[in-house]
């Protein structure tokens, strides 16, 4: 489905609004999972601004520390009271920095990595057993998370069961706690691996809202689908120092002010 420039611009705008919200939440603590929001901003924008429909579809956020991006997009799309974002990560807040059972708005979120795809597989299986024709199950998976064996157990099973309503979106930002994913474990060739497991695999620039949206459009294959979104944890925020730790960014007051100014200027 081709989209006009106005639609794409709206998605870019939404992605930057997610970035702004994430900077504001991170600034409350001076550090946090900002890099994940920067890499996945377009991804959340294209899902919640288009491909994904709550009620019809289900969304599983496998890496729980990505909830910062979800909170941002949920506040922007009316799924979450924007006022609640100021409680992010504080004592007794529902909006914990790593998602939990109490996290509002998500169909499923895990803090322990590698579990989410199995959750999505269970949802897709439940839909099939109930004869539900409408809707899809989206699962966000991070690239570092693919070091966990369970992801591949689930991938094998989903393909064997031909769960064609299942869509995995990988935020391939090449970032994990100890550094770049590629320096720690060789995941490449990623698309070939998923194809060899029986999946339909597409690879896109994860900051290109046109390419992402197209990759997330419904397709009729007999197989589950994986969208490998190539991203970076620094995209969309020029003021970040080049050596910022993508997994857990330190955000001084000065840097936060500059980041907010940059994003507000772009959004104006």
């Amino acid at each position: 489905m081709s989209r006009d420039e106005r639609e794409l611009e709206a998605l870019r705008h939404l992605a930057d609004r997610v970035r702004l919200r994430a900077v504001q939440m991170t600034a409350l603590h001076g550090l946090g999972y900002l890099g994940q929001a920067l890499s996945s901003a377009e991804l959340f924008a294209c899902l919640y601004g288009g491909a994904f429909s709550p009620g019809r579809d289900e969304f599983v956020c496998s890496p729980g520390h990505y909830v910062i991006a979800f909170y941002g997009v949920a506040a922007e799309t009316g799924l979450l009271d924007p006022g609640a974002l100021s409680t992010y990560g504080f004592d007794d807040s529902l909006l914990e920095a790593v998602g939990t059972e109490r996290t509002p708005g998500l169909d499923l979120v895990f803090g322990s990595l590698g579990l989410g795809l199995s959750g999505g597989v269970g949802f897709a299986l439940a839909r099939r057993m109930r004869g539900q024709e409408e809707g899809r199950v989206f699962v966000l998976v991070s690239d570092g998370e693919m070091e966990e064996g369970q992801v591949w157990e689930a991938a094998l099973f989903a393909a064997h069961e031909r769960l064609d309503r299942l869509v995995v979106v990988i935020d391939a930002n090449d970032s994990q706690v100890d550094g770049p994913v590629h320096a720690i474990t060789t995941l490449e060739p990623l698309a070939d691996k998923w194809r060899a497991f029986g999946w339909e695999a597409v690879e896109v620039d994860g900051h290109d809202v046109g390419a992402l949206s197209e990759a997330l459009d419904p397709v009729t294959t007999q197989r589950p689908r994986v969208v490998i979104a190539r991203t970076s944890t620094r995209t969309g925020l020029e003021v970040l120092p080049v050596d910022a730790d993508g997994h857990f960014i330190k955000l001084s007051d000065e840097l936060a002010t500059a980041a907010i100014a940059e994003l507000e200027a772009r959004l104006a």
């Binding site: 269970g122 109930r130 157990e153």
Partner: peptide, 22 residues
Amino acid sequence: IHTGMAEQNMVSVAGALARRGF
């Protein structure tokens, strides 16, 4: 449902099925 010898996946799939009323 035969999940093969993949107990981690089997248990997480079971959790998701339970969330959907099974």
